[in-house]
Design a protein around this nucleic acid. Structure first.
Lengths: 327, 327
DNA sequence: ATGAAAGCGCTAACAT
DNA sequence: ATGTTAGCGCTTTCAT
């Protein structure tokens, strides 16, 4: 800016005025300044600008588990779109479900003084965010709540959705229904399992613990669990899958089997409708979650001081066939 | 930092020393400083730090078409991982295939003084990046080349891949092969179309122009194109699809038909193997592309001055059934 | 309409 | 081992 001023033969505050479209510059001077800017290829350094202005960096951080997961990819896009509408950029990072990485990303983002932070929490303890909150950084959690941190939170109705899905199977006449979830220390996995138990109990069905599998969705584990559930005297006649990774793995394991149990998956996925037996799912709304979380964040950033709210987005049962297979 | 110094009763350069782990501070003083830091919840402002240090922001920008597209989502994740290994954060934005938005994102990122920029180009003219390049910002393009800008570029072997796919259909005995691409002003779409023509010409097959459809993959357009190709005296017996969006749309339109043509898709997608007729594809390597682009970028940022290179990643033909249907 | 000076939070280069 | 000064590139405030 100093250089531009020298070339244009003006004081460097005048350059600042031109760059920011402030009034008080004659058209003639402005033209000369613009010429100098073009000649030197000058770009305003927003870092310095924001440092001086003191407050907003117009930049928000997004920490999720994995952008390449279709669920988070869509959520991500929704956050970007809302941010853009508010003139903010988005720093994005994948924690890979590693609490340490989550913390690193979040604190790195805060060190860059993001105005706000949207996090899909993985860590068990979120005390590390206390200072940031105290410093005035807006924080919103999405998909899962923070452990012991009062901030705006956007969740799916995990219990209700699973009750719906399992309820649907029960209404089809199933009584022995298996549940394939995910690692039980993941909030959503625990909630959905609770939904399964609640639905079963509500229908007066005792759950045999061999029908329940809570583990990372790896093919070998799933295969063993399925074998356990489907073999023996009283095999399960239906399956509820706790998330789309699990559903996909289960479908792949089930594909070669001659007789297939009914199946409902939690979370929708592309091509579910084109599979040999189209898959009935409890659909979530990843775009809605991202949008809602971002909107809450920007509201906070605008100074909203109401008590933190927890929003639960409803799910939608989509019947496609796999959940309506005859007993 | 000033406040911390006051609370700890030291000069504020000492605080800086403690924060950055520089030597020259007694353990006793350091402890006192750390206590003050904890008490005040102090976090170093990296913006100011980088401003002073003058050079690196440890931040790169990634401009792609749409993070929610599985292809870009995976590419995105790969870039994040490489950036993390280099201690950099990633600003990510989706251009939605809008040249203006691409430019906005890129220049916004540059205004924040990203050290480097990875772009999936959409704009026809990339002159707006000249000043940034001149200013020393490293730039890499991925998936498509920049129009008239000499920078490192990472591409898929679009022509070769399509020649492979179409060649496979030709080897199965097909002679009337349709091609469903995408908007012809997209570089990859044009390249793949060229591959199709090249393969057909190589086999001595004249291409009837009614077999070629180059348009955005919307269901209505695809339906009409398919109808045109499959009706009449001499319908096509096989289809080559130009990208995974098109393939999915085509599959959905084809699903209700009694007799289905053979099909090869460019770009792999999840569940392709579980469809009623598993889909033969020419697979790209989105993760490899993201990783390669990011590595080239960081090499440039480290001062590499060799001539810009263009890397073409090979494709892989995966036979699953749809491409091997009998004539 | 224009410019000079001060200062945002930090670090580099010198003191002490 | 610690403090002081200057200055990164910009905006704010106050002069002219």
């Amino acid at each position: 800016m100093k250089d531009v001023a020298a070339v244009a033969g003006v004081g460097f505050k005048t350059v600042s005025r031109v760059v920011n479209g402030e009034p008080g510059v004659s058209e003639e001077t402005a033209t000369r300044v613009r010429a100098a800017i073009a000649e030197l290829g000058f770009r305003r350094n927003d870092g310095a600008r924001l440092l001086r202005q003191g407050n907003r960096t117009s930049c928000v951080g997004l920490v999720l588990e994995d952008v390449s997961d279709p669920f988070y990819a869509q959520l991500s896009r929704a956050v970007q779109d809302v941010a853009r509408a508010h003139g903010s950029l988005v720093l994005t990072g994948s924690s890979a479900a590693d609490p340490l990485r989550e913390q690193e990303l979040a604190t790195d983002f805060c060190a860059r003084r993001v105005d706000g932070l949207i996090v899909v929490p993985t860590a068990a303890d979120h005390g590390y965010l206390e200072p940031e909150l105290a410093a005035g950084t807006a924080v919103v959690s999405v998909d899962r709540p923070f452990a012991g941190l009062a901030v705006d939170t956007v969740l799916t109705d995990n219990v209700g959705g699973t009750v719906d899905g399992v309820g649907h199977l029960l209404r089809q006449g199933h009584r022995r229904i298996g549940y394939l979830g995910d690692s039980p220390d993941i909030f959503t996995a625990a909630q959905r399992l609770a939904g399964y138990r609640q639905a079963m109990a509500g229908a007066g069905c005792a759950v045999d613990e061999s029908w329940v599998s809570m583990a990372k969705p790896d093919p070998v584990g799933i295969r063993l669990a399925l074998h356990r559930m489907l073999a023996g005297e009283a095999p399960v006649t239906a399956l509820m899958c706790g998330n789309n990774r699990t559903t996909v793995t289960v479908l792949r394991e089930l594909a070669p089997l001659p007789h297939r149990p009914a199946l409902v998956g939690f979370d929708d996925f592309e091509l579910a409708d084109l599979l040999p037996v189209p898959v009935t799912v409890v659909a979530q709304d990843p775009i809605g979650m991202g949008r809602t979380a971002a909107e809450l964040l920007f509201r906070r950033m605008r100074g909203e001081t109401a008590a933190p709210q927890r929003i639960q987005l409803p799910t939608r049962l989509i019947l496609r066939g796999s959940g309506e297979l005859p007993l």
